[in-house]
Amino acid sequence: MLMDSTRAQDAMQRVLIDVIDVKKSYVTNLVTTPVLHGVNFSMQRGEFVAIMGQSGSGKSTLMNILGCLDTPSDGEYRLDGKQVSALSRAQLAVLRNKTIGFVFQSFNLLKRMTIQDNVALPLIYAGVSRAEARRRASQQLENVGLGEYGQRQPNQLSGGQQQRVAIARALVADPPLVLADEPTGNLDTKTSVEIMSLLTRLNREAKQSIILVTHEPDVAAYASRLVRLKDGLVLYDGPAATGLQQMRTEQLEQELGMPASEVSE
């Protein structure tokens, strides 16, 4: 009995994210646009998930909900054992601060602040002293290979370097989850590979849970699990290799099918 309950608790704690029938509609000028039609998705600690889907399929909308930056219109979202819809704005801020590290497509570093202070900022909001925050920020910069860049300003760094700073900032407060919406979207292929290697290393070595949105199958291939969205619903949820293979087949069929029909006419 005792064994059973601890195991159940263990299993509970292994679940990081639980999304149950989440719907989201936007209301603009009295017109309601449904975007998510009922998404179900759950994730264990230590997983590396890639989300793919056509433009407008609702990937960013889902990521915003997962990141507690936006609330679902309907359905339930549990993060790290907490019912997110029950939390106030201030509690959500604390939850984001402690639980989630964000990596954005456009890096989103604060100008006017040194790289070190940018990385230290989540700790400052967590109430850590400035000296300690800076010390840990430097450590984290070391970790992403930018140890010597702490005193520079963001605009003095290349895109790839800025994105690595953003990753350092996402990791500095040691959150259980990293959310990355198209982190390689503004980077060239070579730099993308660097960033993805870094994220993969974090997942393998530090068992860091990561959810990543991307358009590129090459990027998604770094993940272990793939979720495909289509028109606000989950189209595929399974191993990344299988999912990507399936995508390739679909694409090939389309490319082969089209010329064939053109020829017949």
Partner: peptide, 16 residues
């Protein structure tokens, strides 16, 4: 506005 968004995302409370 964008700076405010970034700060809120990484943990700034409305009071901050």
């Amino acid at each position: 506005t964008r700076e405010i968004g970034i700060r809120m995302a990484i943990g700034a409370r409305p009071s901050d």
